[in-house]
Computed example of a mutant assay.
Amino acid sequence: MAPLQRDVRENLSTHVERHIRSSLLAGRFTPGDRISLISLAETLGTSVTPVREALSRLAAERAFELIPGQIARVPRFDAQRYAELRDIRVAVEGLAAERAAERITKRELAKLKRVLNQFNAASQAGEVERMLLDSRDFRFMVYEASGMPALVRIIEGLWLQSAPSFRLMYGPNDRDELLENAYGWLLQALTDHDPAEAKRAVERAVTMGASRLISIVG
């Protein structure tokens, strides 16, 4: 992580939290990762206090565990817990996609197409970190198009607990053709303003990813 460039109007611990939250959602942490609060503060160019405050709030959302010695740890992978998160995600992410299909604009569709092209290029090149980042951006652009900010916050909370495990599905230079196909299906459904198909596409993306992950790790 690079040092933070902070908007002076924003509380520092809130800014630190937003930065860490974004990294979690992009799969930049993996289950079991241990993070020194002191080292993270030095990397971000802050004192330990805002880092501790930020991680405490994220721990309350079960994204981290705080352990003695100024250490935060990403929870270890648990197949049963992940399956529970999968079932909830299927319901809420499917709803968000359904609503997005009803109201998405041409401008939003054009942005989604650009991000999907980036995702496909990263997947085909085996650039896993870039692929995870583009996948996050694509999915949340869809969910935000639902016009339901409270629902998007619920989805984000579920991703904070789930996204660190996404990286476990991939080895170096892996491609994700299944997700490429699921996202192509989703974009077409959104373009056609077809809520039922958009919902099915997202449900497939969630369930097939979870099944693959549990079979590999669980």
Rank of each mutant, 00 (worst) to 15 (best):
L4K: 02
D7L: 11
E10G: 02
S13V: 04
R18D: 11
L24S: 03
L25F: 06
G27Q: 01
G27D: 01
R28H: 10
R28Y: 07
R28M: 07
R34T: 15
I38R: 15
T43V: 12
L44K: 07
T46W: 00
T46M: 00
R52W: 02
E53H: 04
E53F: 04
L58T: 06
E61C: 02
F64H: 12
G69N: 13
I71M: 09
A72G: 06
F77C: 03
D78Q: 03
Q80E: 15
E84A: 13
L85C: 02
D87H: 13
A97R: 05
E102I: 06
R103D: 01
K106Y: 10
E108Y: 07
L112Y: 04
K113A: 15
R114A: 12
N120A: 12
N120P: 05
A121N: 11
S123M: 05
S123D: 06
Q124R: 15
Q124G: 05
G126K: 05
R139M: 13
V142S: 02
L151W: 05
R153Y: 01
I155Y: 05
L158E: 03
W159K: 10
Q161K: 13
R167D: 10
M169K: 15
Y170H: 08
Y170S: 06
D174L: 02
R175K: 15
D176Q: 01
D176M: 00
L179S: 14
A182R: 13
G184N: 09
H193G: 04
A201C: 09
V206G: 04
G209M: 12
R212T: 12
R212V: 02
I214Y: 01
S215L: 13
V217F: 00
